[in-house]
Design a binder for these strands. Structure first.
Ligand SMILES: [Zn+2]
Ligand SMILES: [Zn+2]
Ligand SMILES: [Zn+2]
Ligand SMILES: [Zn+2]
Lengths: 148, 148
DNA sequence: GACCTTACTGAGAATGATTATCAGATGCAG
DNA sequence: CTGCATCTGATAATCATTCTCAGTAAGGTC
């Protein structure tokens, strides 16, 4: 006899939750995130993960998963769209920032432009820099071409 | 005979609204903004401007004024606090960004670290950078000393 | 100064993203 | 296998911000 299960329930997916408990809902969410391929809102993710026939996933669970992934460093906030926070998959590792295509939402990592000189000039003015936020917006090649 | 008026009604205040209509409410708001001396939320501003005995100013008017000042370039968003957007007085003029003291909220302008090299490397990767957001967070001398 | 047009005001309702609640389900260490 | 801490999900609650709309008042013009 064959077990009845949803095809995506046990799909191997990258550990985006950083050691936290891995439930069926979180497995489906972790599998859905890379399938979006760009910046997304929590509601976007909720729609993707709730599409199809099987039972959906509660919106609160999606918001909690996004928080957990962001805390784990596998997701990063990359701006906002119509009052909703935009998130994107983040490779973690080396410190970096993101460039978001405002046309299609694709996101690429960029090096950090906050260098020692800037930091030093701030310190000379009496300020200690503890953190920073940098996000670039632009157009990918395809979207730039499309608007010609 | 002396005219009866609210002391702040006609106080000369910098034109933060960029040519738009200057009402009594906006004059009071424009006078209140510099008195805060750092980052503030719309609700903060509403409280400051509504303190005292005379009639307050509607919260919607404050939100509208903040939008207008931001559009005029005299105010800039410098992050968020507890889900509310933080704003700060911005000198306009030369392109720059802001460093916010997370202790007391004081804000100073900083030069733009997005240089031609970064822009060029993005273009080599096929991306055209159209805009960017940069904000630094840290501690001013007084706040750094205070936590010793 | 009177007039007119149009932008601004303000109270309150509406919107909408995100979070809190809480009882039930379930991952997972031991 | 068991125990329990964590996760889930439906729903209610929160709360920043925007909308509505009738009334007010800038500011230009004559
Ligand atoms: Zn694109
Ligand atoms: Zn950086
Ligand atoms: Zn400070
Ligand atoms: Zn810049």
């Amino acid at each position: 006899m064959s077990k009845i299960h949803h095809p995506t329930d046990k799909a191997p997916s990258p550990d985006l939750f950083g050691g936290q408990r891995l439930s069926a809902a979180r497995r489906r969410i972790a599998a859905a995130v890379p399938s979006i391929g760009g910046a997304f809102t929590a509601e976007d993710l909720h729609e993707v993960v709730s599409a199809g026939d099987g039972p959906g996933i509660g919106v609160a669970t999606v918001y909690r998963a996004v928080s957990a992934m962001t805390a784990a460093g596998s997701l990063a906030a990359v701006g906002a769209r119509d009052g909703s926070t935009l998130y994107a998959l983040c490779t973690g590792g080396e410190h970096h920032h993101h460039l978001v295509c405002t046309g299609c939402g694709i996101v690429v990592g960029i090096g950090c432009p906050i260098d020692g000189a800037l930091r030093r000039s701030a310190e000379e003015a009496g300020y200690t820099v503890t953190s920073h936020e940098v996000t670039l917006y632009g157009l990918c090649r395809a979207c730039a071409k499309e608007r010609a």
